[in-house]
């Protein structure tokens, strides 16, 4: 088990009239090396949950365990700095965190904060910029000269440069065009296949279906389900009850099934779907 939550509660502004109980008795085990989607309506607690993984937030009660590091309400924040490196958290619209004069300086900023030498960090930056699909010539440019999509890649390169074991991404494709989104998700898949545990917070079920292995469903501060992607997309009634837009392919299958077809609703590959439809028309 890479990431474990035991009876984790989190209340914002406890003891004030504005107290907000965001996480209620969360129990969760996320397997090392998996690519897990975290889904749920806005306000369900996803953002609060992921901030516990790199200890930006401490549980009000309960405990969080990341590999062998234990986090509870009483853990002193400075002793949790290693967690920021172990679990790299990429917020929404990460391009807004760039600030250095050159892209090189911005990418090495993270690693240097964790004690990596400048020389070593520069080597890493050269690898990272290529990993995110840009060439080395970008390193000497100012991050502010780039387009939004390119800036986002730089921000992600900066987090990957810290070499986290766990990569948490909050809506990484928001605002990107289809090609940009595809490249980004393929990057995360690649990084996952190389051994990193990836957690993807997303509202786009098409992405969840195509790229993730497991899904955690959050609802009003609780973890309601933690199943494989295949299992989740078989339960289409459940998903609709959560007001979650089904992937295009899934709702298409459902409509066909309403009229005599018998297709497996968890099909994610369009070619498989085409074969299946063909098969059922030929029988």
């Amino acid at each position: 088990m890479s990431i474990t939550f035991k009876e984790v509660e989190h209340t914002y502004s406890a003891d004030t009239p504005f107290a907000y109980h965001a996480l209620k008795g969360v129990n969760l085990n996320i397997k090392k090396g998996s690519m897990t989607a975290l889904i749920g309506h806005t306000g369900s607690g996803k953002s609060t949950l992921i901030q516990h993984i790199n200890a930006l937030l401490l549980p009000t009660s309960g405990q969080v365990q990341i590999e062998d590091i234990l986090i509870t309400a009483t853990n002193k924040p400075s002793s949790l700095k290693p967690l920021r490196k172990k679990a790299g958290l990429v917020f929404q619209f990460p391009e807004y965190q760039l600030f250095e004069e050159t892209i090189l300086k911005d990418i090495i900023f993270g690693p240097k904060n964790f004690g990596i030498s400048e020389e070593e960090a520069i080597k890493i930056a050269k690898d990272m910029i290529q990993l995110v699909g840009l060439d080395e010539s970008y390193l000497e440019r100012s991050p502010f000269d780039l387009s939004g999509g390119q800036k986002r890649r730089i921000a992600i390169a900066g987090i990957l440069a810290m070499n986290p074991d766990i990569l948490i991404l909050d809506e990484p494709t928001a605002g990107l065009d289809p090609q940009g989104a595809k490249e980004m998700l393929q990057l995360f898949k690649k990084v996952n296949q190389e051994g990193k545990t990836v957690i993807l917070v997303s509202h786009d079920m098409n992405q969840v279906l195509e790229y993730c292995d497991d899904v955690v469903v959050m609802n009003h501060g609780h973890v309601e389900k933690h199943v494989t992607v295949n299992e989740l997309f078989k339960e289409t009634d459940y998903l609709t009850s959560l007001s979650i837009d089904l992937p295009i392919i899934t709702s298409f299958i459902l409509k066909l099934n309403e009229n005599g077809f018998h297709l497996d609703p968890s099909i994610k590959d369009i070619n498989v779907l085409i074969q299946e439809i063909g098969g059922q028309l030929y029988e």
């Binding site: 400075s78 920021r84 990429v90 990460p94 807004y96 993270g110 964790f114």
Partner: peptide
């Protein structure tokens, strides 16, 4: 929070580190 996730500690560190922390907040 984004900068803290990159290892910035706003309340700790030498004067130089603290200034850099603030820069990483002010410029964005």
């Amino acid at each position: 929070k984004a900068q803290a996730s990159r290892g910035v500690e706003f309340s700790e560190g030498t004067l130089k580190e603290k200034i850099l922390s603030i820069v990483s907040l002010i410029i964005p």
